[in-house]
């Protein structure tokens, strides 16, 4: 990676980059309320499954496809497909709101592909994949960086919710590195036929969050 790219990547993938990620728990809030996630180990297992067999896996597949696509029409079509992959109303809002916010915020650099216009909806992994390609990042680095950012955001949500100590959260992040690397390896050969998985209770958690009484998070 050229040295000039590193500060950009760190900025774009930082939790302070204004995508509003802190407001989304991806259904974790319901699972914590249900008592399913009570410890750092529970959180780590839950997130490892999302990475290898759930929504974060699908996001990685979408991101890799977005990175590879040259044709603007194909990118728009991928965005439509990606939005349809959302498992619930809040999941859809989560990816589309963050996709739009990322595209706006990235305007400070000249790296937004022209195809990504606000006349249609753009899921986060499709925007990030296309932008990081245009910025000169390798596909593998883009996949790993974006997946790590998603996981780090959810660990941060879990630390606030469970509640876990800061060191529990950090151990969780460290413990998730093998799953992230494994997912990055496996997703390289995965096409759009391989989106999906079996994190059914995570999807149900996202649905049930809609009616949760006390909510800190939007999803």
């Amino acid at each position: 990676m050229p040295a000039a790219l590193l500060p950009r990547l760190l900025t774009w993938m930082s939790q302070s980059f204004p995508t509003g990620a802190f407001a989304y728990s991806h259904g974790l809030e319901w699972a914590v309320d249900r008592g399913v996630l009570a410890s750092a180990t529970d959180v780590q297992d839950w997130l490892a499954d999302l990475v290898l067999h759930g929504s974060l896996w699908s996001d990685a597949v979408l991101l890799r496809q977005a990175w590879r696509i040259e044709d603007p029409e194909a990118l728009r079509s991928l965005a439509g497909f990606g939005a349809a992959c959302a498992a619930s109303r809040e999941r859809r809002e989560e990816t589309l709101a963050q996709g739009a916010a990322f595209a706006r915020a990235i305007g400070a650099w000249d790296v937004l592909p022209v195809a990504i216009a606000p006349d249609q909806e753009w899921p986060l992994p499709v925007v990030v994949g296309a932008v990081l390609r245009r910025a000169g990042l390798s596909e593998e680095a883009a996949c790993l960086a974006a997946s790590h950012a998603s996981v780090a955001n959810l660990v941060s949500a879990a630390v606030r919710l469970v509640p876990l100590g800061q060191s529990d959260g950090l151990r969780c992040l460290a413990g998730l590195e093998p799953a992230l690397l494994e997912m990055t390896r496996l997703s390289e050969a995965a096409g759009l036929d391989e989106v999906g998985g079996c994190c059914l209770l995570s999807d149900i958690a996202a649905m049930r969050h809609e009616t949760q009484r006390t909510r800190l998070f939007r999803t």
Partner: peptide, 15 residues
């Protein structure tokens, strides 16, 4: 085994 986990099936075998 896959479906026993909290995020997947929680032990469910019918979906």
């Amino acid at each position: 085994i896959r479906l026993r986990r909290a995020a997947t099936g929680g032990g469910a075998t019918a979906m």
